[in-house]
């Protein structure tokens, strides 16, 4: 019990003193998760809205595939990207392995199906009269797309936040593709794993508190958005 209380007390000290290593680790997590979520948003939202608005042969299969990818294990993504960017892989010459770029690629693959499939749901759940109304007012495809984004904005924001939550808390991709290099690719989750192995619980607890705080903020945001959308 004393291990936990001492660890949490020490963790409080690390957080309050704004320890340099601690801030660097949190910074790496925020940077990679933000960039990968941004890229997943840029690709996933238009793709999701497109799937919701159009009908083509195989559309349902694509949506089913997206839903399947929601539960994609992070280590499988790590393995897949590793095989592509390792020295023997087809993209080995790019020297991406054990870099933040590699982490971002892996996290993008994790976030994309989440953002896309939740965007499909958000866009599909808009009022059935919306498309006809837009046509009747004389909106072109682009204008209709942006109005649909506006009408589904709370659902789409929730999709983006969920995507961010997923990549911020993942460990498999970061460990396998980032390599947990101190001051470069070490992020919150890989640092917690390392510190626990070393028996240095204080830093682990401090980082765990940050992770939990972010999860808490994300949940508050999601609940607020759900309330607003009603």
């Amino acid at each position: 019990m004393s291990l936990i209380t001492e660890g949490i007390t020490e963790a409080g000290h690390i957080i309050c003193s704004l320890d340099r290593e601690f801030l660097q680790i949190v910074g790496v997590s925020l940077k990679t998760a933000s960039i990968s979520t941004l890229l997943a948003t840029a690709a996933g939202v238009p793709f999701g809205v497109f799937l919701a608005l159009t009908s083509f042969p195989g559309r349902r299969t694509v949506i089913a595939l997206l839903h399947t990818l929601l539960s994609l294990p992070t280590v499988v993504v790590g393995l897949l990207v590793y095989s592509l960017i390792s020295r023997q892989g087809p993209a080995g010459e790019l020297n991406l392995l054990y870099s933040q770029t590699a982490m971002i690629i892996g996290q993008f693959i994790l976030a994309f199906p989440i953002v896309a499939s939740l965007s499909v749901s958000a866009a599909s759940s808009t009022d059935s009269r919306l498309t006809k109304t837009l046509k009747s007012i004389g909106a072109n495809r682009q204008q209709s797309f942006f109005m649909l984004l506006n009408e589904a904005r709370f659902g789409i924001l929730a999709a983006i936040i969920t995507g961010f939550g997923r990549v911020f808390a993942e460990i498999g991709v970061s460990m396998m593709l980032g390599g947990n290099i101190k001051g470069y690719t070490r992020n919150i989750t890989t640092a917690i794993a390392l510190e626990t192995n070393k028996g240095e619980f204080a830093m682990g607890f401090a980082l765990g508190i940050v992770l939990l705080s972010v999860a808490f903020v994300i949940n508050i945001l999601l609940v607020t958005l759900q309330r607003r959308s009603k």
Binding site: D127, I137, G138
Partner: peptide, 26 residues
């Protein structure tokens, strides 16, 4: 053609912005 649908749908914005929408897209 100015068109009013049966059971019309209003966008999730203010009355002013709803009324202005058709003009903005033109």
């Amino acid at each position: 053609v100015g068109c009013l649908m049966q059971n019309p749908y209003l966008f999730n914005m203010t009355v002013l912005n709803n009324v202005a929408y058709g003009l903005k897209i033109r």
